[in-house]
Design a protein around this nucleic acid. Sequence first.
DNA 1: AGCGGCGAGTTGTAGGACAACTGTTGTGTT
DNA 2: AACACAACAGTTGTCCTACAACTCGCCGCT
Lengths: 243, 243
Amino acid sequence: MPSSTTTPRTPLARQITEDLRRRIVAGEFSPGSRLPSEAELCERYRVSRVTVRTAAKSLESQGLVDIRHGSGMFVVDFGGQIRSGLQELRSITETIEELGLDAKVRRISLTRRQADENECARLDVNANDEIVAVHREILADGEVVAISIDAIPGNLVPASEDVSLGNGSVFAVLDRIGLTPNRALAEIHAVRGSDVPIAEDHVADELLILLDQVHYDRSGEPVAYSKTYFVEGRFQFVILRTR
Amino acid sequence: MPSSTTTPRTPLARQITEDLRRRIVAGEFSPGSRLPSEAELCERYRVSRVTVRTAAKSLESQGLVDIRHGSGMFVVDFGGQIRSGLQELRSITETIEELGLDAKVRRISLTRRQADENECARLDVNANDEIVAVHREILADGEVVAISIDAIPGNLVPASEDVSLGNGSVFAVLDRIGLTPNRALAEIHAVRGSDVPIAEDHVADELLILLDQVHYDRSGEPVAYSKTYFVEGRFQFVILRTR
DNA sequence: AGCGGCGAGTTGTAGGACAACTGTTGTGTT
DNA sequence: AACACAACAGTTGTCCTACAACTCGCCGCT
């Protein structure tokens, strides 16, 4: 491994993808309307058509736009409202705030302890290895919408970061220590409130959706294992399915 | 509208995307391994690099491969097994069969009736318009894994197709009448077996995951509204979340 | 009015060239 | 021997130009 690793700049195509995505979800282009042609976007961004096309294709496979041969690129129209989908890897609080709600996080506990059997398998660590476990409640407009358990291998997190783990986003901490997750494998399950290990009394009779996911960094190493229990009816999961 | 509309051929890039996808999920390239370089794929498929790159990018945004600048394209490794994700728009039976199970469909009923309030809103049809409703059970290896209700606006389906609707895939019928869905907006809910309208007795105590989705064709028109109830634990939902 | 073809505009594909990045290999220094 | 660094080959990212395929409205013809 080289001694000094300079981080490569973000590719142009990705920058343009992000910019267009922001503009679309911000409503700059109304649903159903046609976006500027590839040629126009080339001038606008001062890049080649290849780059614009790469960005466009990316948006298409995200389900945000529809590219029609010979006709143009159109903003997908889902009855007037665009919602944030589950397939994009973003923090829960971010998603809540994008819906215009007030997001709050309450830390319930933060402990360093031995990994259990399940966590060992998911995170690919040895039995008895230490992990940092954070239990939290996520509130939208003062109402509990989700309960989460995040587990990170202890050797990845310096003890100095422990305190900040419970406060802000787990993503932010992972970012800071250079372990940005760029994909996750998520299982979806339906569970009863009484089966949630850290549930409060008032959810015992509720149904919840469990998002059971392992986050991987760009090198393919698992960096976090999280179980997030969403209270049915208080948080709407949406998936854009394509093709 | 022109009198004769010839369907355009499928773009090369899409064909290559599909072929590579099949090869990858079939295990032709082992997880973590490097795929042939773009230049090699160009020769293999006899297409330009633009086309190969378009296909590659598509696979990347599906979460199947990881493209690394200066290094190559690698099959994403999720602990050794690649599973079919929920974000791809394919029939349930196809998905089951890809997992190596024996898929069967049992039609419970097929009726033409007035659309209810919910269906009107989702399908954007007028109250009292007729719809074709199909109730089915989907079995994997003889066990019921899902119960589905599919609703299609009656004016879209010639009565001659009614009989085939209950037997094969709903997708196949929609294909035949030129209404191939190319995207869907899906909500995910957790429900009790006792809340499933057409449930058998034996699922009353089970939990189910409801996939509540509207299918749109390429022109953006809703062509089908389906509610699919999956028995928790018998069908594993997986989502690949990226970036 | 209706039909049909033409043509401008747009996306899809081709081919060649160079820039940026990665991993390895080799070389020189300590 | 161990380490730092330069060179290099291989790969993906971007650019340019040109043409093919497709869509849709315009216009003239019947």
